[in-house]
């Protein structure tokens, strides 16, 4: 049909090949302009970040010795280390993960799979999304009133872990809901059609298929929590700790011990903050070294999140 008429006949005077090429070349120029601008914008971000990190490494790398990881803070910069800080970070993260992840994943699953679609659910959903944007110091204030005083947990690892759990829950809830929503409705129908209950559909299908997305959200949340300083200062983290809490695992029955939950604590970013704020430059190398540790930890966690997303997603194709 249309094959009989000449191609590209827009009006009576047909464009010559030269015209067309000129036209394309002209429009292509803007392609190039934007590509250059975009590259520039991207590089500014990447280069700045890289420069900061390199600066940090230059300042701090000499301090990254085994002793640095195995020493308590000290009045002498060259003897000070981050032992209590990294142990504190690990224990606080443990509480954060153990409390925050199950609560947030359950909440996300409930909102997506169970909650009736009504105005109350909508209000809750909007609020959860907004909570992710609340400044972390506000969580600190809330936690100071609630955990430290009202519940009487004091300025402890428990309070710190709960505070950070509260803070990262919205992130995990949102990630969970997105992952759950990505499970095709046809899969749910298939499961319901053979007589599964809502809980069986959730447990056997929705949850397992959304694990990659949920895990990514969990790691991103924890990576954010690891660097948090403000809310922990608010609830009274110590800045100079020369002891370790009782270890959670012991050699005598019952082999576990929960004393550490009530222990005072410091964490890596607070230790770093403390060193930065000292007068003179002696401690600045320590601060830089602690900074390297935090940045590397965060990068590792984000890298692991990306890895998980790729590996686990590949196993599931609808």
């Amino acid at each position: 049909m249309a094959s009989l008429s000449p191609p590209l006949a827009i009006d009576a005077s047909h464009a010559t090949v030269a015209d067309i090429r000129a036209n394309v070349a002209q429009r292509r120029r803007w392609d190039l302009v934007f590509a250059v601008l975009g590259l520039l914008a991207t590089s500014i971000g990447v280069v700045t970040l890289l420069a900061l990190f390199i600066d940090l490494v230059m300042d701090g790398y000499q301090r990254l010795t085994p002793d640095f990881f195995l020493s308590f803070p000290s009045r002498r910069a060259s003897e000070a280390g981050i032992l209590s800080a990294w142990v504190g970070t690990c224990l606080v993260m443990l509480v954060t993960a153990v409390v925050g992840v199950p609560l947030a994943v359950s909440a996300g699953l409930y909102l997506e799979e169970y909650a009736p679609r009504n105005w109350l659910t909508t209000v809750i959903e909007i609020n959860v999304s907004n909570l992710a944007a609340v400044p972390s110091i506000v969580y600190g204030l809330l936690a100071l009133g609630l955990f430290v005083y009202a519940l009487g947990f004091g300025q402890s690892i428990l309070s710190a872990g709960l505070t950070l759990a509260l803070m990262i829950m919205p992130i995990i809830v949102v990630a969970t809901r997105e992952a759950v929503r990505a499970v095709p409705h046809t899969i749910r129908e298939a499961a319901y059609a053979v007589g599964a209950t809502r809980w069986q559909v959730t447990r056997d299908h929705v949850l397992p298929y959304s694990i990659p997305g949920i895990a990514t959200g969990v790691i991103i949340g924890l990576a954010r929590a690891i660097g948090e300083t403000a809310p922990l200062i608010t609830i009274g983290a110590l800045t100079f700790i020369a002891y370790l809490p009782n270890p959670p695992l012991t050699t005598t029955p019952p082999f576990v011990n929960f004393d550490w939950l009530w222990s005072g604590f410091t964490v890596l970013p607070i230790q770093m903050f403390n060193w930065v704020s000292r007068p003179g430059t002696a401690f600045h190398a320590n601060a830089a070294a602690a900074g390297i540790v935090i940045v590397v930890l965060t990068l590792l966690m984000n890298g692991f999140a990306i890895f998980l997303r790729y590996r686990l997603r590949k196993r599931i194709n609808w």
Binding site: T186, I187, E189, A193, H205, Y209, R315, I316, W318
Partner: peptide, 12 residues
């Protein structure tokens, strides 16, 4: 009473 759908929907 069981059902077969329009688009094949096996579980992964």
């Amino acid at each position: 009473i069981s059902m077969v759908f329009q688009k094949p929907n096996p579980f992964p």
